[in-house]
Simulated scan of single mutants.
Amino acid sequence: MMIREAIILAGGLGTRLRSAVPDLPKCMAPVGDRPFIAYLTDHFRRMGIQRFIFALGYKHDAFEEFLRNQFPDGGYTISLEEEPLGTGGAIRQACLLAMEETVLILNGDTFYDVELDALSAFHREKNADCSLCLKYMKDFDRFGVVELDDDQRVRLFREKQYYPEGLINGGVYALDRNRFMREDLPVKFSFEKDYLEKVLEKRRIFGIRQDHYFIDIGIPQDYRRIQNEINHLL
């Protein structure tokens, strides 16, 4: 079964980008004449996503006009955080509104041109709790590295530091919603630190390499760069 439903994490405070975009959530930052998140939803609708759950928090009112214009016929719902829940808490709350067994998890400030059909097939083949899309990079220090075993199961997450090369977590996941909701997890937690990186031996966490365009606009340098790379988003 193809993945047809996506949760977009769009409630972050965006503190690192605030010098460039002071008045908006970072995923609503303008790129060309549209908010960044519009390119994200356009892309994944083309890939086959039929329903979006927007996990909102900080300055959630900024999304109202965008959602009306982007989804005039519906096809979305909102999971609103009354207080910051962390990425894990936000996903857990949004999962209560999901309808599919497997959901796609996206970060609203990241564009990663993944092959959704390949991710769906991989996730199903591995009977994974969660499948990560991994981007190969060279000469970087902004991201940690993910190491896989011979079966593509995640065996280690390495901390952020300089690496001459490696696979990074691209922030796009296929998640088995039912298994995730059965986990004994707190109300507020980090999906990355408290779910993905803990007790790896007990969870079926796998990684699939996807060598396609990737950008995270969370810092001003990359936000400036995306203005000249709009063609990659179309």
Rank of each mutant, 00 (worst) to 15 (best):
R4M: 01
R4H: 06
E5S: 06
I8L: 09
S19L: 13
V21D: 03
P25A: 03
M28W: 00
F36M: 02
T41G: 03
R45Y: 04
M47I: 07
I49K: 00
K59H: 08
K59W: 12
H60N: 08
A62I: 09
L67Y: 12
Q70I: 14
P72W: 11
G74M: 13
G74A: 07
G74P: 00
Y76K: 10
Y76L: 14
I78D: 03
E83K: 13
T87S: 12
R92N: 04
R92F: 14
Q93F: 02
A94G: 00
A94H: 03
A94D: 03
C95I: 10
L97P: 01
M99D: 10
E101C: 09
V103K: 02
I105C: 14
N107I: 13
Y112V: 14
D113N: 06
D113V: 09
E115I: 12
L116S: 01
L116K: 01
A118S: 10
F122W: 06
C133F: 12
Y136C: 04
M137E: 14
K138R: 15
R142T: 13
G144T: 04
V146M: 05
L148S: 05
Q161W: 06
Y162N: 06
L167Q: 01
L167D: 00
I168T: 02
L175I: 14
D176Q: 11
R177C: 07
R177N: 09
R179C: 01
R182G: 05
D184S: 14
V187D: 05
F189N: 03
F191R: 02
K193Y: 05
K193T: 05
K193W: 01
L200V: 08
I205W: 01
R209A: 06
D211E: 13
Y213I: 13
I219L: 08
Q221E: 15
D222K: 15
D222N: 15
R225C: 07
I226C: 04
H232P: 00
L233C: 01
